[in-house]
Design a binder for these strands. Structure first.
Length: 283
DNA sequence: CAAGAATCCTGTCAGC
DNA sequence: TGCTGACAGGATTCTT
């Protein structure tokens, strides 16, 4: 899925096109994705003006202007394969795997496409956004000041789980996914198999620094384009060209001579997910 | 409680 | 070509 940099990029794309527009028509094309859509979703957002956008972890919050004394936010998660298509209003047929469609007063059609349907859409009161069950247990934003060595140290202390899994745990830090955890661990020269509680203060400090750095660079690149991710306007992110270990099995890492002197980047499976790392430089 | 596995779903690609 | 199995950016829920 889209991890934090991709979600941030999608949110910026939506914001550029939709801010201040009115939703003239909304429709759902099935009753659910990861979870059932809230009752009357389409009818409840139809006629609303889009006031602002916010990202929290890998969630997008589209805030609607006040109606009948309360303001609601549309909570969107892109799951693994979710995409937002923005196009000029054209043919009437619904593209394959488009589950929600919005139309704006200035003639744009926004389609939420998600083949695997791990994504979700909910409608919640803006005033209670962070109390939502999906947001309530999230850890700090990785790019915020609250994600620092002291915080991470406290969260990792005594933990017997691999650091890889600890960083994917959204209650420790919210927004890192498989790619950026692999990349951050490489940059910090820490093996994904190290037990979380065994990291030294110096390593934790380094990890926090390079994780932020990786995300900042990825956002600047417009995210990473793998199979099916694209920005709302169809632009492709290009951070995938900057991957140092992700998907690069057998290649030498940037510090190593590579085969035959060194077997290069390896792939292992940890809690069902691929970890890519260099066993020689990551200890 | 904590850690790991199973689960939801579809598409794509490698190998035979 | 067509079939099969592995794998994919996530995160909850179920087992041990």
């Amino acid at each position: 899925m889209p991890e934090l940099p991709e979600v941030e990029t999608v949110m910026r794309g939506l914001s550029a096109r939709l801010l201040g527009r009115t939703i003239t028509h909304a429709a759902t094309h099935r009753p659910d994705m990861r979870w059932p859509f809230p009752q009357g979703l389409a009818a409840r957002i139809q006629g609303s003006r889009i006031g602002s956008f916010r990202r929290r972890a890998k969630y997008i919050l589209m805030r609607l202007s006040e109606r009948d004394g309360t303001a609601d936010s549309v909570l969107i998660h892109l799951g693994m394969s979710g995409r937002m298509n923005i196009a000029a209003v054209g043919a009437n047929e619904i593209p394959l795997h488009e589950h929600v469609t919005l139309h704006t007063d200035d003639g744009w059609r926004i389609g939420f496409v998600d083949p695997r349907r791990f994504g979700s859409v909910d409608l919640i009161p803006t005033a209670a956004e962070d109390q939502h069950r999906l947001l309530q247990a999230l850890g700090p934003e990785p790019l915020g000041g609250d994600f620092n060595a002291k915080h991470l140290q406290a969260r990792l202390a005594g933990r017997a789980t691999p650091i890889k899994a600890a960083l994917l745990d959204q209650s420790n830090v919210a927004g890192l996914g498989n790619i950026y955890v692999c990349e951050a661990l490489f940059r910090a020269s820490i093996s994904p198999e190290r037990l979380a509680g065994s990291l030294t203060p110096a390593e934790i400090k380094r990890l926090v620094r390079v994780a932020k750095q990786t995300l900042v660079e990825a956002i600047a690149a417009g995210g990473s384009t793998l199979r099916d991710y694209a920005q709302p306007d169809g632009e492709l992110g290009y951070f995938q060209h900057a991957f140092r270990v992700y998907g690069r099995i057998g290649e030498p890492c940037e510090h190593c001579p590579g085969p035959p002197k060194c077997s290069g980047i390896q792939r292992i499976v940890q809690s069902g997910r691929s970890s890519f790392y260099c066993p020689r430089t990551q200890r």
